[in-house]
Each structure stands twice: as C-alpha cells, then as structure tokens.
C-alpha cells in the first residue's frame, strides 16, 4: 500500500490490518504492523479472523471448471481451447526443468527448486500424481482414469490444464492468483500438498507465459505438463 492511502478515520487500523494481510503495505508499514500483531493479542486474533473470513468467502464462491455446454453456449468452443496432448513428453519436461535450473539463482532458491523439480518429475513420470490431482479425494484411480486425465477426452471440460506452477513460500493463494493472472495463467482449484498449482494457459501463449512466470522471483517454477512443446 502507498502512504497516500487515506481510509476513513474510524476504520484506519482495520484497513491497515486488512492491507497488511493482503501484502499491500510498504516495507516500513508492514514491519510496523507485524510488530503490532505480534505484541497485541486482540489484533492478532482480528488478523486471524479476517483471514478466516477470506477463506469462507472463497469457499462460498469457488472457482470451478466451466462445463463444455456452457463454453459452447458462450460461443467459445474451439479446438484451441481443448487440451492438446495425449501424453507427457518427459524429455521436454526435463529439458525445460534443466533450463530453468540454470536460469534461476541456485544459491538463492534451492529449497524452492526441488519442489518444482519433484512435482514435474512425479507428474511427468507416471501420470499418477496428475491423475490424483484431478480425482476426488479418496477415489481410487484406474489406469484408464489416469490416461484420461492427461488426454483430450470429452469428459475433461474446460479449462485446459496445461502447466504446473509453484510459488515461493511467502506467496499466499491470493497473491498466487494475482501473479499468475498478471502473466496470463489461470490457476485452477487449490494447490496440492506440495504447494503446486495446476494452471490453464492459452495454448498459443504458453511458452511466453511460462517464461514470464519463471522470470518472476516470487515463482519457484513453472512447467508445462503435456507434450505440446515438443
């Protein structure tokens, strides 16, 4: 937040606390608010409450995939909108991962890099991780289900998930959406246990969008999860 923000007097502290939660305070303001929250239990409880409210609001209006019927109704059905690959191209994924490793500052982000490497490896390796990602919790995944998840199957509705993105530890979900959205990627659902998000990117722009994301210091990694980049 900039210092020229002038909320109404009575709401000033709540507004600043709200902005602090959103990562919108400048460095000095954020530091001051962090100290206040640390030393003031009431304020800490208030911050926790606000965070809980955000979670409830997001749960009340969840982001969902758009049914094919609705895409058609909107006049947006197009081959370019559908997933483009049947299988994962392991060599392409590894190549990109290695390029990403070289491009990133290894000393600065070692812990983040292993996360994206691990995620891409498991997804690229057998497809099970990706299948589990899409499957309901607790559901068993058959071989055909795994394959269908990564293929251009009619049961897979828009959006076309074609990338995986992992953010730095300090990036919360709201910021993740913001960063991805600014680059042109749409994060789908919620991150998995390892903190990896699945993402949909317009097929024709995927390389550019992934490059933009990789260049962002808040992004630990961004990789394609199909073979379209061969």
């Amino acid at each position: 937040m900039n210092r020229n923000m002038t909320p109404p007097e009575g709401d000033a502290q709540d507004s600043r606390l709200s902005a602090w939660l959103d990562g919108e305070l400048d460095t000095d303001g954020a530091q001051a608010m962090s100290e206040l929250v640390t030393s003031d239990e009431t304020l800490a409880a208030r911050a926790q409450r606000m965070s809980r409210i955000d979670d409830l609001v997001r749960a009340a209006v969840p982001e969902e995939s758009v049914p094919d019927a609705l895409v058609a109704r909107l006049g947006l059905s197009t081959p370019a909108a559908a997933p483009s690959a049947e299988i994962v191209d392991l060599s392409a994924v590894r190549r990109q991962r290695e390029e990403h490793r070289r491009a990133a500052a290894p000393a600065a982000r070692p812990r983040l890099l292993w996360r994206i490497a691990a995620q891409v490896a498991v997804i690229g390796g057998v497809g099970v991780a990706a299948a589990l990602w899409f499957a309901p919790h607790g559901a068993s995944v058959s071989q055909s289900d795994e394959y269908r998840t990564l293929s251009n199957h009619p049961q897979v509705s828009a959006p076309a998930v074609n990338a995986v993105v992992i953010f730095g530890d300090a990036v919360d979900p709201a910021a993740a959406h913001r960063i991805a959205g600014a680059a042109g990627a749409n994060l789908i659902g919620t991150p998995n246990a390892a903190g990896a998000w699945k993402a949909a990117i317009a097929p024709g722009r995927r390389d550019d969008v992934l490059s933009t994301l990789r260049a962002d210091p808040r992004v630990a990694g961004a990789e394609p999860i199909d073979g379209a980049n061969r």
């Binding site: 895409v71 947006l76 081959p79 828009a158 749409n186």
Partner: peptide, 23 residues
C-alpha cells in the same frame, strides 16, 4: 491474432471470469 486464438485465450481464463461474475 485470429478470432479463434482470441477465443482460446478467453477460454483459458474463463473459470476466473466466471467466478468473478458470480462474486
């Protein structure tokens, strides 16, 4: 870009736009 490409790009962020509309 061709309209088809633009439509594909719209589809990519359609879930977000749909949620935005619902909000």
């Amino acid at each position: 870009p061709a309209d088809e490409d633009l439509r594909g790009r719209i589809v990519a962020f359609l879930p977000r736009l749909r949620r935005f509309c619902r909000g």
